[in-house]
């Protein structure tokens, strides 16, 4: 008798077990739904950002139309707003910063993967990445009080003297050395995007199969030739992705630029002149903006920035995904 009751649990026990299984299934379904909802929330946030910026900037867009993009004047008194000067400042500072940061960033990555003694590799890599962790306001205060005076007394006079009789360059590097302005902002942005470019370039350099490099070394190539002819061609897409990611950062960077750009709503030929960027304009003027149209114009600037950075970052991610897929396979 006892053996039968062991093999066949009582009806009550089976019901209890069934109830437990049902309870487990229910909790599992709830947990699954919660995780799924959170994942969808990430999409909703980005959608919400796009919609809210669109709604907020509607008034400015319907008032000014396309001319908002092509007008330079920014006059809160007469309520005439155009985004050309901030767009120009944003694009120029980001472009120059990338021009400075890309060679240095790739250089550091080559140093870390090819030259650096193994024990130093990790500490130096971490130190460069710590640069990425420093908040942008720190770069701003450092830029304003330490770097800008140095630019004013050393770098700007040097460039003015160097190029004063070269036709095009003399107008690029002209005007009184204020210290603050487009070039100073670009240089600080370059320091800020450097770690992003370096760490991504280093990561993609590490994906190069050792056998490719070894065969190049085996036929007698120098380190530079291996880097130039094997490593860089192999990782081109990944490097471009890293550069685009840095560009996205540089375009949207706010606080550091706000400190040193000079906040002048005009387009000057000289890189020494003060200017403004989209994010600096919003940071400086948003809380002081009186009037719906003024606020709406600032939000329209935000929408422009959002669209530009979204496109750049989407391209960057697409490129990095391609290299991930290749190494993942």
């Amino acid at each position: 008798m006892t053996t039968v009751s062991e093999a066949m649990p009582s009806l009550a026990a089976m019901q209890a077990r069934e109830a437990t299984v049902r309870r487990f299934a229910l909790t599992d379904a709830i947990f699954r739904a919660a995780t799924r909802f959170s994942a969808i929330l990430v999409l909703l946030i980005l959608g919400g950002v796009a919609i809210s910026l669109f709604v907020g900037s509607w008034q400015a867009m319907s008032t000014f139309g396309v001319s908002f993009l092509t007008t330079e004047s920014w006059n809160p008194v007469t309520e005439k707003f155009g985004a050309l000067a901030p767009i120009y400042g944003t694009v120029v500072t980001a472009a120059i910063s990338i021009l400075i940061a890309v060679p240095i960033g790739i250089g550091i990555a080559i140093f870390l993967t090819e030259l650096c003694p193994r024990p130093l590799r990790r500490p130096i890599g971490i130190a460069v990445e710590l640069l990425a962790g420093i908040p942008s306001i720190i770069y701003g205060i450092w830029g304003l009080f330490i770097f800008a005076p140095f630019v004013q007394t050393t770098i700007q006079p040097f460039f003015i003297n160097l190029f004063h009789d070269v036709p095009v360059l003399s107008s690029l590097f002209a005007g009184p050395p204020y210290g603050i302005g487009l070039l100073t902002s670009s240089m600080i942005l370059a320091i800020m995007v450097l770690p992003f470019i370096t760490s991504i370039t280093k990561d993609v350099f590490d994906t190069v199969p050792a056998v490719l490099k070894e065969s190049a070394y085996g036929i007698g190539c120098t380190t530079w030739e291996v880097t130039r002819r094997v490593v860089i061609p192999y990782t081109r897409v990944g490097i471009m992705g890293g550069v685009m990611l840095g560009l996205g950062r540089a375009l949207g960077e706010t606080m550091a630029v706000t400190f040193v750009i000079g906040n002048a709503h005009r387009i000057s030929a000289s890189l020494f002149a003060p200017g403004t960027t989209i994010s600096a304009t919003i940071a400086n003027e948003f809380t002081e903006a009186d009037g719906e149209l003024y606020t709406s114009s600032l939000i329209a600037l935000g929408l422009i920035l959002f669209v530009i950075t979204f496109l750049i970052l989407a391209i960057a991610r697409y490129m990095l995904m391609r290299i991930d897929r290749r190494t993942g396979a």
């Binding site: 946030i45 990611l245 950075t309």
Partner: peptide
Amino acid sequence: VRFINDILLSAPSIIIGLF
């Protein structure tokens, strides 16, 4: 979600402020 999340990760924080 991974794609959008990566974009949010590097999106300008001032845009989040406006939102």
